[in-house]
Amino acid sequence: DDWEIHFNNITIRLHGVSEEQIEELKELIKNGAHEEELRKWAEEVNR
């Protein structure tokens, strides 16, 4: 699925990401992940 997530003036566009991966991302954000951590997560997902 395609997703677009907005938070802290950042837009993250995701393509072909599962519901499970979105839940992981929500947890990262909820736990106060920094932009660098989110980038690493996105790189892993996009492999």
Rank of each mutant, 00 (worst) to 15 (best):
E19L: 13
V45S: 02
E43R: 00
N8Q: 12
F7M: 06
E27F: 07
K40R: 14
E37N: 04
E27Q: 12
E19T: 11
R39V: 14
E4A: 03
E27D: 10
E37T: 08
R47T: 14
E24T: 08
K30W: 05
E20L: 11
W41E: 02
E43G: 01
D2W: 15
I10D: 04
N46E: 09
E37R: 05
E43N: 02
S18Y: 06
I10T: 08
R13V: 06
N8M: 12
N9H: 09
I22H: 02
V17P: 15
E36L: 05
A33Y: 04
E4N: 06
E35S: 07
I22N: 01
E4M: 09
K40H: 10
E4T: 12
E20F: 08
L28C: 01
H34T: 15
E36Y: 02
A33H: 04
T11M: 05
E24Y: 09
I22S: 02
T11E: 05
I22E: 02
E36T: 06
E24W: 06
H15Q: 08
E4Q: 05
E35V: 09
E43Q: 02
E43Y: 01
I5Q: 04
L28F: 02
K26Q: 09
A42R: 02
I5H: 05
A42G: 08
N8R: 09
L28R: 03
L38K: 01
E20S: 14
G32Y: 01
H15E: 08
A33S: 04
I12F: 00
H6E: 08
H15G: 07
V45C: 05
E20C: 07
E4S: 05
G32L: 03
F7C: 09
L25D: 00
D2L: 09
V17C: 06
G32S: 03
D2C: 15
R39Q: 13
E43F: 01
K40G: 04
N31S: 12
E19S: 12
L38C: 04
A33R: 02
H6W: 03
N31Y: 03
E37I: 09
D1Y: 15
E24F: 10
W41F: 09
L38I: 11
E20D: 11
D2K: 12
N46K: 11
H34A: 13
I5S: 06
H34C: 12
N8L: 10
R47H: 08
H15N: 08
W41G: 02
A42H: 04
D2Q: 11
E36H: 06
I12G: 03
Q21S: 08
V17N: 01
R13N: 13
N31C: 09
I22D: 00
I5A: 05
I22V: 08
E36P: 03
G32Q: 03
E43I: 01
E44M: 08
R47Q: 15
G16S: 10
K40A: 11
N46R: 11
G32F: 03
W3C: 11
I5W: 08
E37K: 05
S18L: 06
S18K: 06
V17R: 02
E44Y: 02
I22C: 07
N8T: 05
E36R: 06
I29A: 02
E43A: 02
N9D: 11
E27G: 10
E4I: 11
N46L: 14
R39Y: 10
E35C: 07
N31W: 03
L14H: 02
W3G: 03
E4R: 04
E19I: 13
N46A: 14
E44H: 13
H34K: 14
E37G: 03
I10N: 03
E24N: 06
I10K: 05
R39E: 12
W3A: 03
N31Q: 14
R47V: 14
H6F: 04
N46D: 07
R47Y: 04
H34D: 14
E27P: 00
H34Q: 14
G16W: 12
V45F: 10
N46P: 04
R39C: 15
G32W: 02
D2I: 14
L14Y: 00
L25P: 00
A42F: 13
I12K: 06
E35Y: 11
T11W: 01
K26S: 07
Q21G: 04
E4Y: 09
E19C: 14
R39T: 09
V17Q: 02
H6S: 09
G16Y: 14
E44F: 01
E36F: 02
E19Y: 12
E24A: 09
W41S: 03
G16P: 04
T11D: 07
K30S: 09
N9I: 06
I29C: 09
G32N: 05
A33C: 11
A33I: 12
K26I: 14
E44A: 12
E43C: 06
I12R: 05
E4H: 15
H15T: 13
K26C: 13
G32C: 04
Q21D: 08
L28G: 00
Q21P: 00
G32H: 06
I12S: 08
I5V: 07
E44V: 06
H34W: 08
V17S: 03
K40F: 05
E23G: 09
R39L: 15
L25F: 13
L25H: 00
E37D: 14
D1I: 15
R39M: 15
G16Q: 12
R47E: 15
I10F: 02
H6P: 03
A42I: 15
N8E: 11
V17G: 02
A42L: 15
L28Y: 03
I10Q: 06
K26T: 07
R13G: 08
K26L: 15
E19N: 10
N9E: 10
A42S: 03
K30A: 12
G16C: 11
L25R: 00
G32A: 02
L14G: 03
I22L: 09
K40P: 00
I12Q: 07
E23V: 09
H15D: 08
W41L: 10
E19V: 13
E36Q: 07
V45N: 08
T11N: 08
K40S: 08
V45P: 00
I5E: 04
T11Q: 01
E23S: 10
E20T: 10
E20P: 05
R39F: 14
I22G: 03
Q21M: 08
H6G: 03
E44I: 08
V17M: 11
E20V: 11
E19R: 13
D2V: 14
L14C: 09
W3I: 14
F7K: 01
E23C: 10
W41P: 02
A33W: 04
I10Y: 00
R47S: 15
N9G: 15
L38A: 00
E36K: 06
L25K: 00
I10H: 09
E19D: 12
E37P: 00
E36S: 11
E20Y: 07
E44Q: 13
I29H: 02
F7I: 11
L14T: 03
W41I: 10
K26E: 07
W41C: 07
L25E: 00
